[in-house]
Design a protein around this nucleic acid. Structure first.
Length: 290
DNA sequence: AACGAGGTCAACCGCACCATT
DNA sequence: TAATGGTGCGGTTGACCTCGT
């Protein structure tokens, strides 16, 4: 007897998420936390399978996500970690705060693979492509290229709380102090950050209320007109959020604020407040770590 | 301006793993 | 111990976008 499907697929919606669906999901998770994905569709009224809800949240709606292309620094990390871990994208993602496995996988397949091939490096083995193996004299050139694009560096995550910083060698995960391969000296010692709650940031704790982003008021009309069916419209809205400190209700909202998420949304969507004038640096949160 | 090719990325699919019964 | 359910993971797909012709 085969396994039952994860959900009854009859009548379920597929494809891109709408802003309305996103809002329902965000609202639900703010009030209930991340649990029982299977129950989420029933409780939210979403015509999605629980799995789809989880994916949408973890890959797109999670407030601690960084958006945009991977930086050069992050690319180096990915290449280095891939050399050690292979296609274990979730493991790799766990070392890059704010990045998802899906995002890294996509970036690898679309950007990094090509880059490495151009450099004459096999993206699977991280060794010089076969033609070069036959010509060992080319090897130093390959290494030079690697150095040119990925100079030796030490990779450190900086703790929010410097006093609580802990260094964990990757040996724990059979990774060891790393090198991109045996042929160059790309080195990275990973310092995991540990905050006051004892969370390693890898471990993505349930979101704190102050980490939640909600849609700004700036685009509801445009988003609905230009991309009502687009899966990205709500994120476009998110880009212009102020930092939490700039929110009108301030930091003293406490832990009960999430219960008033709808009114918060209403405020942000309301034309009669000052949010129009607030600019949002989407890296605000990450900068807090630095 | 129109079309096609190639690139990008969100979302889906199916399997694996783990926890619970 | 086996069966079952829930979740996570990696591979793949397909819609949309961009660029070149």
């Amino acid at each position: 007897m085969g396994r039952q499907p994860c959900c009854d697929k009859v009548g379920l919606k597929k494809g891109p998420w709408t802003a309305e669906e996103d809002k329902k999901l965000i609202d639900f998770i703010l009030n209930n936390g991340q649990c029982c994905w299977r129950a989420v569709p029933k409780l939210t009224g979403l015509l999605r399978c629980g799995k789809s809800c989880r994916l949408r949240w973890t890959n797109y709606l999670r407030p601690d996500l960084k958006r945009g292309l991977l930086s050069e620094y992050e690319e180096k990390m990915v290449i280095d970690l891939h050399a050690q871990l292979g296609n274990r994208w979730s493991k790799i993602a766990s070392h890059l705060p704010g990045r998802t496995d899906n995002e890294i996988k996509n970036h690898w397949n679309t950007h990094i693979k090509k880059k490495l091939r151009k450099m004459g490096i096999d993206p699977v083995t991280h060794k010089p492509l076969s033609t070069n193996i036959e010509q060992p004299e080319n090897l130093p050139i390959q290494q030079e290229k690697v150095q040119e694009i990925m100079p030796p560096c030490t990779v450190n995550y900086v703790s929010i709380d410097q006093s609580a910083i802990t260094e964990i060698k990757l040996d724990d995960d059979k990774m060891g102090t790393s090198s991109i391969n045996n042929n160059n000296n790309f080195d990275s010692t990973i310092v995991h950050e540990v905050n006051n709650n004892g969370f390693c940031t890898d471990e993505v704790p349930l979101i704190e209320p102050h980490e939640i982003l909600v849609p700004s008021k700036s685009t509801p009309s445009t988003s609905s007109s230009s991309s009502s069916s687009s899966s990205s419209n709500i994120i476009e809205d998110l880009k212009f959020l102020p930092s939490f400190d700039d929110w009108p209700m301030g930091n003293d909202m406490g832990f009960g604020w999430e219960n008033d998420f709808s009114s918060t949304l209403d405020f942000l969507l309301n034309d009669d407040n000052d949010m129009n004038n607030v600019t949002y640096d989407e890296s605000w949160k990450f900068e807090q770590l630095l």
